[in-house]
Amino acid sequence: MIKYLAVIVSVVGLGMIFLPIVTGFHEAEQLSPLAAQYVEGSINDLETQNVVTSVIVTYRGLDTLGEVTVLFLATVGVGLLLKDGVKNRLTMPFSEMLETTSSVLVAMIMVLGIYIFTHGHLTPGGGFQGGVVIASGFLLLLLTSSETKINHLTLHLVESLSGAAYVGIGVAGIVLTIGFLSPEVLPLGEFGRLLSAGAIPVIYSLIGLKVGSELTSILVTMGGE
């Protein structure tokens, strides 16, 4: 019982740490100067409608590259830990209707995923969300049919090529423009068009492919062959 008491005390202590944040919290009236700079820069310098996208891809681009690397390492870790797949995969009972509907739906889900990551600089969404939608399309295939075989070589090829292209665009930024991952390696274009914002849609599409293939790989490994 003394252990339970220690847990309660430590949890309450943790709560007390957060107390100053709650009591000292007052809602800001204006954006912080840094955030205001990001909003103005996104509109005036980068021609990007979605400010969150320009923060992720450009202003904090190196950070995002690091996050994608962590995701890659996690995928490798899952693959390493669960090398030997289970024999019978988790699938729904076979039914003609389920299989036909899912094969139609998968194509639509893939198109939605591609739409989300190519329009990341215009509307809410982007590479991470689009990649997850693509991975859930593959998940539907895995769950509805036990015959589905996902080609690991293709997954690895898509994953590593998009990762290499991401870093390649970053290095092109050093050579051609002001610095690593600068979107100005491609023409910035007109505000609000699909082909605008320089390299931002290209980079975000590459992130989408990379995240999609990595998460599909995690799902295939965990779900079993």
Binding site: V52, I116, G125, G126, Q129, V132, S136
Partner: peptide, 10 residues
């Protein structure tokens, strides 16, 4: 934050 909402939902 609709971007975060999309990510969290999926």
């Amino acid at each position: 934050s609709p971007d975060v909402a999309m990510t969290e939902a999926t």
